[in-house]
Design a protein around this nucleic acid. Structure first.
Lengths: 208, 208, 208, 208
DNA sequence: CTCTAAACGAGACGGTACGTCAAGTCTTGAA
DNA sequence: TTCAAGACTTGACGTACCGTCTCGTTTAGAG
């Protein structure tokens, strides 16, 4: 019945519930304490688990937080609102809502900061969070090209570059708005942002 | 008549050179160790200063790093290349070059992460870094409006909203590209980004 | 003082050897540095033990030094030299020899000084050092009463008062001679002291 | 201890009131904080004086406390009660009363402890406190010899030895009673002690 | 009445040790 | 073999005093 004990492995099997309890405890601690005051000993206590159990499964604080935060972003869905602009606004608002939650705010930026000096950590973040949500850009772009709202792009390499660029612009803008400027990425802001993204500064400064 | 004491304040005046030495030592430590392994004791040693001197002037690691990083961004200059697009590319490349430096990478994201739980710190970041560079957007936009590249905006409140938005998009995209995606914000990327910023996705997907 | 896992207590038991190593290191540091320059960090290093281990077992410098010094006095033995005077001289010489050792000198008076402001510490000193050596007075007096050298004392309360008085006179005189006057409590002095103790000033001024 | 501008020394003379204020502040701090928590900065503040003024006059905490405590013992007077026993009881009770004061308790034993590692300090204590009160023993003994209560001692060297011994026994017993045993040196105890001192254990166990 | 030189208050300085806390490892007995 | 419990080493934390220093400001006697 256990997921991690493949067969008749000797010894006591790993507790199946521990992983979920630990990740939930981690998010709880992030909400209450933030990243820098979160301690693994405290997480273990909250999860009703020994510190050794925690270290047996994760290498350290960073890896644990990445996994705890990654789960938050899996609930993102690309809505089908009929137009590219509305689809973008819908998904960006969802993204902003997640980023506004303290467990995401506190944890995400901290592990990104840590990843600037730890390539393995950056790769883990890319795989667990960034790349996993790239699907939204791919899906939305394909749908818009089908609708004729965006020109088709035959060159696959060029296509990848554009997708990356869009992702950086969208994710970066929302993150900067939320965490650095410290203002809400609300409907009004998301609308203005979407207009600029689609039509540029020169054409769409005020509204659309 | 006083050399270093601004008014007739009693007591030994603070060492004038210590501040600069400490900030330089902080940047040096950020390069070598990154934010999480940087310790104030080590910074004090590098600066040839006692730990207490450091604590007398800064409340903690976060405040110190903000000041150390803020100085990096003061070298940003808005070039006059003749067109808005070229001006943007010029300043974004400068910004990307600074962000690529390890002392900026390591320090900036970490203090932003910390600021999610510390309003005073966020305000310090906003005042020392963000607001201070906002001048670039204001100056560039005014110049473009004089040139007729951007429509004039008579409503001052609307104007402020647009300026904020531009800043979030530009800064956020470069930061995300550099720190999250982990790819260089080189000339090619900056060119593509500028095209999207000015003309939008629909009109300027491949190039201009 | 510490019980080594008395029953099926969970968790790793305390190191049995650490206690002895720490007390020995404390005495070594007392010899080299004296009480005021002795630091717990240094003791920990000498004992090959972490500072936290030390703080887990003792509340502070004072308690540690009391325990380290107390062990020194356990080697005191009441000799049986045939007469009360000779017995007293023998044990007082032993006591003086211990007090002459730098680890006793340095440590003992300092913790007594500290105990003037800390009742718990005074009680610890009384229990660990003073009361523990009171046996010598009791034993010597009983032996002398058997020999007929001292009159029997039927009243137990009066008996206790006398014993306390003898202890204060003997211990106090030796301590004062050694630490305050700074002169050795050698055989000659001990002999004169014993004559005064047994026969008083009026009868035995010069010698016996 | 300090000469207040002995001759036509140029410059501003030392404040005459500062010395007294500092010593009083030291005693006050000893009462409130005890020796180990007493800090020179705090003494300076209490005395309304700068820390530098304090260091200009005393080498450190130990020297300062010796001077502060020494003044306490100068009020000791040898009463003339008619008999040696009564004279002794009178002066011992005075001595016990001083030792019971917290500023004496706290300070005296601490500097004695320190003096075990600092010969200059021991000499200062001997000169300022011990030797200064030796007069009481000399005076009392001479008076008793005149009265015929004590045999005369023609040999001056032997006489000095006896005086030293008496001093060690008296001072040591009172100090041990007060500080180590932690019980009051009250009239009853002083009476018993005096009987032992004059007549010895064998003859005067219960009372006299 | 100035001049001069020391003492003064204030407080910053480079240090040392403090006692606490968290990280990550190790050792026990029980499941 | 894993688990909970908890002792272990390590190392940074932020604080408190130390004793020294550098200021600008008295303050007295000498010229």
């Amino acid at each position: 019945m256990q997921s991690s004990t493949p067969a008749g492995r000797p010894g006591r099997p790993r507790s199946a519930t521990a992983d979920a309890a630990i990740l939930a405890a981690t998010r709880e601690a992030l909400v209450e304490l933030g990243w820098s005051r979160l301690t693994l000993g405290d997480v273990a206590t909250r999860a009703g688990v020994a510190k050794t159990t925690l270290y047996r499964r994760w290498a350290g604080k960073n890896e644990l937080v990445v996994d705890a935060v990654a789960e938050l972003f899996d609930e993102l869905r690309l809505p089908d609102c009929g137009s590219l602009a509305d689809d973008i606004e819908g998904v960006v608002l969802q993204f902003a809502a997640i980023l506004a939650r303290p467990e995401a705010k506190s944890g995400l930026m901290a592990v990104i900061a840590e990843s600037t000096r730890d390539d393995a950590l950056r790769e883990r973040i890319r795989a667990s969070i960034v790349q996993r949500q790239m699907r939204l850009v791919l899906e939305g772009r394909a749908r818009a090209q089908q609708r004729g709202e965006l020109p088709p792009e035959p060159d696959p390499q060029e296509s990848a570059r554009i997708v990356d660029l869009i992702f950086d612009v969208v994710a970066g803008a929302v993150v900067h708005r939320t965490l650095v400027s410290g203002k809400p990425a609300d409907e009004e802001w998301v609308h203005s942002f979407t207009q600029v993204l689609l039509h540029g500064l020169a054409e769409a400064p005020g509204d659309g």
